[in-house]
């Protein structure tokens, strides 16, 4: 644990130093106009260009707040008594309906997250849309099946891995001599699905992370409070 603390101090120290010595950062704070934003970031959705380009620092810590909230819910509810009798809805029609809706909502949410830079949407919205299907499925499944299919430990590991990947992507430009949070991948043709450098990658990662977080919250609440 001591080593991790040391590594984090060194990493964020480099972050601040590179931020201070780089003059380019100042021109990257605000675009001239809407077309200027597209030229800077390669994403034709200017809102994505803002929150994953100009204001990426803000978004990073919003993700951290989300993570802390999810961990708080899991930790605090873990000390409370679980429900002895979990009564899911077991009608056949409802089970088939929710299973069908699960696929639709998962794929729609992931589409919204992946295509966040070329159309309306983004990772935050897509994650929540994807999670609604899973929450519907939870209403119809017995608790043992939920814990088997949506294993809480694996989901927590994935969530932390994705968080680490996002921070690594943002800190990586330090090591190749650019200022932190620079969009270091080629920008591509604006309007294509492969464009905008790191914006679609970070958007997809945020989408998966928000999906896992929302599913974890719903699962914990259902485990301790039941479905109705």
């Amino acid at each position: 644990m001591k080593n991790i603390r040391l590594i984090s101090v060194i990493l964020f120290g480099m972050f601040i130093v590179m931020l201070l010595i780089s003059a380019e950062t100042i021109s990257y704070i605000q675009p001239d106009n809407v077309t200027g934003a597209v030229k800077d970031t390669g994403a034709i959705n200017v809102i994505a260009a803002y929150y994953l380009g100009y204001r990426l620092f803000d978004t990073l810590f919003e993700i951290l707040v989300f993570t802390v909230a999810v961990q708080g819910v899991v930790h605090l509810l873990g000390h409370m008594p679980t429900l002895e009798q979990h009564k899911p809805m077991r009608e056949k029609a409802i089970i088939i309906y929710t299973d069908l809706i699960f696929g639709a909502s998962l794929i729609t949410g992931m589409y919204i997250a992946v295509a966040g830079h070329i159309s309306a949407g983004g990772g935050f919205v897509g994650g929540i849309v994807g999670a609604t299907g899973a929450v519907l499925v939870f209403l119809t499944m017995p608790m043992e099946d939920i814990e088997k299919e949506f294993n809480h430990t694996y989901m927590a590991i994935w969530e932390m891995c994705i968080l680490a990947t996002i921070f690594a992507l943002v800190l990586l430009p330090i090591f190749i001599g650019m200022y932190p949070m620079k969009n270091f991948l080629p920008l591509g043709t604006p309007g294509h699905i492969v464009s905008g450098g790191i914006i679609p990658i970070v958007d997809t990662l945020i989408g998966i992370k928000v999906l896992i977080g929302a599913v974890t919250i719903a699962q914990t609440f259902i485990k301790h409070r039941g479905v109705f």
Binding site: V46, A49, R55, E62, A69, I118, G122, V210
Partner: peptide, 27 residues
């Protein structure tokens, strides 16, 4: 402000600020 439509566009900055807060509010 999505550039495959014809502008004048709405201001993107307030929307970009608030898009994250919806999910954070839920959490």
């Amino acid at each position: 402000a999505i550039l495959n439509t014809n502008g004048p566009y709405a201001d993107p900055l307030p929307q970009a600020v608030i898009i994250t807060s919806i999910v954070i509010g839920f959490a």
